[in-house]
Design a binder for these strands. Sequence first.
RNA 1: GCUGAGGUGGCGGAGUGGACAAUCGCAACAGUCUGUAAAACUGUCGCCCUACCGGGCUACCCAGGUUCGAAUCCUGGCCUCAGCA
Length: 427
Amino acid sequence: MLFMVDFGFRVQAKDKKTKARVGEIMTPHGIIQTPAFVPVGTQGAVKSLTPEEIRECGTQLFFVNTYHTYLRPGLDVIKKFGGLHQFMGWDGPIITDSGGFQVFSLGRRGKGAEVADENLDPSSVSGSRFHGLDTKKKMKPDKILSAPRAIASLVKISDEGAEFRSHWDGTKHFFTPEKAMEYQWVLGSDIHIAFDDCTPYGLTHEKARISMDRTHRWAARSLSANAKIKMQNAKLGKPYQALYGSVQGSIYEDLRKESAKFISTLDFDGIAIGGVSVGETKKEMVDVLDWVVPLLPVEKPRHLLGVGEIDDIFALVARGMDTFDCVQPTRLARVGCVYINAASRKWEMDITKKACAEDIRPIEEGCECYACQHFSRAYIHHLFRVKELLAYRLATIHNIHFINSLMEDIRRAIEDGSLLDLTKQWL
RNA sequence: GCUGAGGUGGCGGAGUGGACAAUCGCAACAGUCUGUAAAACUGUCGCCCUACCGGGCUACCCAGGUUCGAAUCCUGGCCUCAGCA
């Protein structure tokens, strides 16, 4: 019989010149060495990879989305398997997002604003990241609903919760903080995140406060709902499942600090910082960390939601973040953009460009990933040109490995006290 | 040789007297991407000038012709494909 490990975190080393720290998060499914990058497997899969490959790339924690798995395959199916771990065939730690981000991303279209919807500032809609969906033509019906519908917001928010219209079939689903807790217990992830109201960039202070207050009320509700479920499951001998509270407050210093303090006073197992990388500048994002992190309890692990690019990683680690998830490496990989450790500030190379067509070198000399150990740029370039599935796999493997290997270097550097030197080498 | 169909921008393929430098798809090229509505999306895509509005030139197999005006109609030529011999 397995020895049940509760959730825990301990700091093992601190950098003297920055707020960076090396630590370990203990979960029932294994230990996570931090700081750690967390690849995103929204629908229960890191696109194109097997769990074994994900692990071989150095991944310690797997990020899955509650909203997506709730829709498909549905919680009933996952329940039959006893949770995501068994369903997905991943026996390492899993962290689940609450669906809070979909409040932001599915809510981007302003036309659903018939209902009081103070989160959707119409002025911010023009800068939508989903600019591709602005045009009616070229939308593939099987992916994006019918055109007129897709323009409207798929989310309506009230104090009670958020009503989503499925991006698959338009059916309505109502998420509340309580339900998000219940769902995540069904998913069986090791770390849950409280349902929050993730706001778009460009919100006024007034609207940001309204939203933040709502996130706070939802945090409290999440916690009490979670306490009940946790107790029931403990009696049944189920493994502990941790809960992180989410800090919001947009780009406003007073709100961010208030949120950091408030969330810190609650009995969460860790703290997530959300509402960043939604369109603000890098400076604004870093400011948020500078305001928030010093107010967080040192003994709790901190997760940054949705960041980051290579340079962001150095910034967030130096500010004391322990884990962070981001779709960048996997998404970029699928469009042929692979990471390289280049002297130029951009750590990306578009392998679909002609320049790679006859390049016999691996993506990166010295890289120990499977793709670089076995294949040339020319071959992967070719795979992308002809849209072979292997292209996406190899690029994804490389990018995840690249970041995880960077994180390993960062951990070592923090222990050595050489983080700033390493940072200089990269930036 | 006869009969039928047809020759349009890198390719496929619309257009069948003016709103055509020519729909659309593919390819090509450039760009975007940070808790994934993403193996996606956006833009460019005859040549030249222009920061921009825009302007100039050459174009729908070739050569003539009809017409104010032709990718579109007429004549001749060349070529391709299918069926028959």
